[in-house]
Design a protein around this nucleic acid. Structure first.
Lengths: 213, 213
DNA sequence: GGCAGGCTTGCGGTCATCCACAATAGCGGC
DNA sequence: GCCGCTATTGTGGATGACCGCAAGCCTGCC
């Protein structure tokens, strides 16, 4: 678990008046927040393990909000982004949402509505982080496996007996047993069932389960 | 597999001129389509196993497109819906997309762009159907299980030994073995590993896998 | 009352898994 | 050359999974 960061609502806007207004709004509602005067500033500071959400103007001097969101996604971020715009149109809103924005609202907006949206964005991020950390954890464990162990694991998940695995890899059953034990140990599970659940949940293993029938 | 229906693009609009125009457009592009003069007509005819997508005006006499989509979702439909509007605004578009609409475009629209959107909607539906049919299949198998069998299955997926299961249910090991065999048989798998994969993939089992550590 | 379906159990045997103990061998780095 | 890591194999035994055969009990339904 590398999560030591508190959820923060990041305000990204090149208009100081807006930053101050939003900042004040969130603080009075007990929503921790930080402000950034440009997309560039925010991107420069951004760390992978940040949690929370982003409230960002779509039109700014320099990098636009849309470009900023694209850059974030490329860096693997899943932080929910709420776009704010003064002169938005339908295609822009649709494009932003289809690219994964959390919401898209127009100025002037209702304070209460925005706070509600931010709250649900924070909730979504919390859910994402839970799934994500599970995936990262499993991925890290997979990294520790040696090549042979990975091979054996694949055959275990294909439901094959140690005997068959030994045959396919042209090694003895005993060796398979050793690899198998190491796989379980390194993956932190105590049975093939747990292994299957862990990998299937994390979506890190595409078993070619031969559907019966 | 109950899928015997061909993917159809359903045009729902109360303006006959639009219906004719869209219908002509799709036919000339080899996209099979059907037309409906109102949301009510469409809903009355709609069947669970329909595939394809929906191109619907958001503002119509009688039931609106948004209400129609809500009704469809309540009936379990996941058909991608593309909204078309003459006088849409940003909040309306955002609302529609956040409720699961596939796209939201304004009139006048570009023919080629619409056909492209419909194509990707059809693709998405095909993907959804694949996932869905797997889920439905597994759900049907789960239905066949008796209460006791479901209980035993839960404990198997929790990674417990037959001995422990027998203990917890206050029955003999032999009985557990019988149930276990029936579970595998009815679920169409040949091992606990396959069972775990199938259920985890279908998302129909929330294993309280005690994370090692 | 009889029949079907579900839940239960025992016996005995085969096959698979898991593990401790013990050992050989290649490879890259200090 | 020694060390650490990985891959390899063997023996033997404890434990668990799976199966065929056989059978008793209870409940709901015709």
């Amino acid at each position: 678990m590398t999560t030591d960061t508190t959820p923060l609502t990041h305000i990204v806007d090149d208009d100081e008046a807006i930053r101050d207004a939003l900042s004040w709004l969130f603080r009075t509602r007990n929503v921790p927040c930080a402000t950034w005067a440009s997309a560039e500033d925010f991107l420069a500071a951004y760390q992978e393990d940040w949690r929370g959400c982003i409230v960002m103007d779509i039109r700014m001097h320099g990098m636009s909000g849309l470009d900023c969101s694209t850059a974030l996604r490329q860096r693997g971020s899943t932080l929910p982004i709420i776009f704010i715009t003064g002169h938005g149109d339908v295609p822009m809103a649709v494009g932003a949402l289809k690219r994964g924005a959390f919401d898209f609202i127009e100025k002037p907006f209702d304070d209460n509505a925005l706070v509600d949206i931010v709250q649900s964005a924070l909730d979504e991020d919390a859910r994402n982080q839970a799934r994500r950390s599970a995936r990262v954890d499993v991925a890290a464990r997979l990294e520790q496996l040696t090549g042979r162990e990975r091979e054996v694991m694949g055959l275990i998940l294909a439901g094959k007996f140690n005997k068959v695995i030994a045959d396919e890899l042209n090694i003895s059953m005993r060796t398979v047993e050793v690899h198998r034990a190491r796989v379980f140990e390194k993956m932190g599970v105590r049975s093939a069932v747990e292994l299957a659940q862990q990998l299937t949940l994390a979506g890190l293993y595409n078993s070619a389960t031969p559907s019966a029938e």
